[in-house]
Design a protein around this nucleic acid. Structure first.
Lengths: 193, 193, 193, 193
DNA sequence: CATGAATGAGAGTTCATTCAT
DNA sequence: AATGAATGAACTCTCATTCAT
């Protein structure tokens, strides 16, 4: 369903998808500014002008990546907001978030490493808002600063863990679970106080 | 006589320093690639060529920032390596690190937000090595993955906390202490296991 | 309708050629370093960036001139190498070389007058090799130094003659023949010894 | 008197001389435009500004090289003009010129390889005039084109021989004599006709 | 006799973008 | 659905040169 193998009006019109794939890969690796449209076009063996057939601007390519890949996160947040703020719910949120992150790993790597750019791409704020929302579902109201930090730390460690642990030994899934455990611990502590 | 709008070139030996200050400020705000030498020069009211009198290249400016600002961190690591790996030591390391971070806050913001660029500036590795060293002083040998994650999470939260909590209410010093407390908690747990 | 001062970009597929023409002319006149891309572009009434659409670098423009104009010389050398080393052959080589030089006169003027640059353009060696090859077809093996000098002097005088005699009276073709005669004399002497 | 080895007010004021030496060396190797004052200054371990104490402009440095090194050539020409135009005289001219060239080899290499620049340094003409003068002492009046070419070829081969034979086997002095012999032959032939 | 600090002009190069075809 | 040709703005960087000290 993701790669466009299924239906609508393709014929082999997978170019748009391929642009997104290559763009994500290159930008995650080199950063937004360092990645030029020429590079993307060359890698795809099309001309730069072809990119402009599919996307209005360079920024548009990146925005489209988010529009596509943020949907699960948005769904998660929407769901979270409707649950009662029990510890059980919070654990479930973390679990689901961990899985969502693993799915969209390159995108998060990109975001993590290009925060400065994010701010000017009109995406940063969107994302920050989402994080605030997500944090809101984890942290109890009227809690002291330390516990708020604990929850934020949980979220942040999940982000960072994705690629910082890349050059650590061990199976990725195992690492994901370890991170999830630590995050859950932190949120649990904050909840209990 | 105030700052001197009239005469050609006076303000003596402080230009190099001023370049570093402005560069750090702009790059932290906009990112490395987005910040042009023209911008830096204009802000200082000198020509681009003047920058090249003081630094051999744009990259050089950034490198010089590190050379200047990393010294305290290096000293801390050196000290940490010579202490016995007691819990007390680890707490002290975190405390000192927290202070060092607060001192070099803009630099860390810059690093955090320009990680993609860091890799190509021959600084990234240096820094990653330092972090590995520092982590080594916190995490016990032969510890299980979860506890390793806890320590790494402690360090990372300290980095991120600096500027993520910027748009949260409250006194900066208070926030720093909250972060430090959470980090210390994490390391303490890892130590006890 | 004449040359088109009005409309933006028409004149179709000849731009590449025109760049080469103008570049050769300007560089032959002013030297490689002194000739800027701005100058070339202005003369063609296009932007500098247009040059980069057709050539990857400034050096590339010059290299392309050689690739185009050296072909006859290469053909001559290839042919010469397959002939028996008789005096008749050598005379023929000189005759053909003289004509080839006359054809590519501006290029040779350029080379003669920018030898220092040639060395760094990765063309110098190529050309030197060719000259060595050509010399090899003229000079007998195991000949004494004086006769080797005679042959080299023949070749070199042909090069230099092209443009040094420019400010001497007389019909160019007549001058070419005079130079050819002297060169032939020199090679003949060397052959007889 | 020329080089300042003798007296007046030196104390170790050899800097001017050293600038000339380094400039000649670098320019002969890389060409005029490619050789920057920074490079010269660095090689001498002084600042660029120091060069401006000794010479008014970059061009001035080169001009001074000529003023110093052309003197023997000028003397030779002056002497040649006063001799009777016998074959013996012409042989002597060539012999002396050969020696003069060997003395000022780097300068001639520089001139040979930077002809394009020469034209703009107001030296080219000077030198061309000298060559015309020298040629005038070798070539008989009212001679046919071929013999004029012979004489010019003799002179030119002497110039070129200096450094083209650099990458040929053999003792430099031996090579010089071989070139001289060929040149003498050419002039002798022209004289006899 | 020389330096430290700076300038103005310009170099080559790259970029995102456009548009007729 | 895509290309070929081009642009304008910006970029990093280098150069010869100046001048107060």
């Amino acid at each position: 369903m993701i790669t466009g193998t299924s239906k609508p009006h393709q014929r082999r019109g997978n170019t748009r998808q391929r642009i997104q794939d290559v763009a994500l890969e290159l930008i995650a690796e080199q950063g937004y500014e360092k990645t030029s449209l020429r590079e993307i076009a060359e890698r795809l063996d099309v001309t730069k002008a072809a990119l402009y057939y599919h996307f209005k601007t360079k920024e548009d390519i990146v925005v489209s990546l988010f529009d596509d890949l943020m949907t699960p996160i948005d769904a998660l947040i929407a769901w979270a907001k409707e649950q009662p703020p029990t510890l059980e719910t919070k654990r479930e949120i973390l679990t689901r978030y961990s899985l969502a992150l693993a799915d969209a790993a390159p995108l998060f790597r990109f975001m993590q490493e290009n925060q400065a750019q994010m701010r000017e791409l009109s995406i940063g704020e969107n994302f920050k808002d989402r994080m605030k929302d997500l944090l809101g579902t984890l942290v109890p109201e009227d809690v002291e600063l330390t516990d708020r930090v604990r929850c934020f730390s949980a979220l942040f460690s999940m982000h960072a863990g994705m690629f910082v642990l890349k050059d650590v030994e061990g199976d990725p899934e195992e690492k994901r679970l370890a991170i999830l455990e630590v995050a859950t611990d932190l949120v649990t502590q904050a909840h209990k106080h």
